[in-house]
Amino acid sequence: MSDTSLAELLRERGLRLTPQRQLILEAVHDLGHSTPEQVHHQVRERAAGVNITTVYRTLELLEELGLVTHTHLSHGSPTYHRVGEHEHVHLVCRSCGTSTGVDPAVVQPVADRLLDTRGFQVDIGHVSFFGLCAECREQS
Rank of each mutant, 00 (worst) to 15 (best):
F120H: 12
T69D: 06
I24M: 05
P104D: 08
H88T: 10
H75F: 09
A7H: 09
E135L: 09
C93D: 05
L67R: 13
V50H: 02
A27S: 12
S34I: 00
P104I: 02
G66I: 02
A27Y: 01
L115H: 10
I124H: 08
S2T: 15
Y80I: 00
R113Y: 09
A111D: 08
L9H: 15
V55Y: 02
G49T: 09
H88I: 05
S128Y: 04
D3F: 11
A111F: 07
V107L: 15
Q22S: 11
V83K: 14
D103F: 02
H75Q: 12
R57A: 11
F120Y: 13
S74E: 03
E45N: 10
V43Y: 04
E63D: 05
I124M: 12
S5H: 14
T79D: 00
T35R: 06
D116V: 10
L23P: 00
S74T: 09
P19F: 12
T18E: 14
H70R: 12
V106S: 03
H72W: 13
R113D: 05
R11T: 15
T18R: 15
S34D: 00
R13Q: 15
A105N: 03
A105G: 13
V92C: 11
R13E: 15
R113G: 04
L31V: 08
Y80L: 01
Q108R: 14
R82L: 06
R21A: 13
Q20V: 08
H70N: 08
Q108G: 02
V106G: 02
T58I: 02
H75R: 09
D116G: 11
D112E: 14
M1N: 06
E85C: 01
P19M: 13
L31F: 06
G119H: 02
G66M: 10
V55W: 00
H72Y: 13
L67F: 08
L15E: 14
E63Q: 13
G76L: 01
P78T: 00
G101H: 01
L25D: 00
G76K: 00
F120S: 09
V43K: 01
E26Y: 09
T69K: 07
R137A: 13
P109D: 04
I124F: 03
H75V: 08
R82E: 05
L31Q: 06
C136I: 14
D3Y: 12
V50N: 00
G97C: 03
P109Q: 09
H29L: 06
T53S: 11
T53C: 07
H81F: 06
I124W: 00
G32H: 02
S34V: 06
G131S: 10
N51S: 07
V127E: 05
G119Q: 10
T54E: 10
R16V: 15
L114V: 06
Q38K: 08
A48R: 14
L67A: 02
R113H: 11
Q22H: 13
L73R: 11
D112M: 07
S5P: 05
H90W: 10
N51W: 05
A47T: 11
H75K: 07
H90M: 07
T54D: 05
E135N: 10
S5I: 15
T69V: 04
V50G: 01
F129I: 12
D116Q: 12
A134E: 15
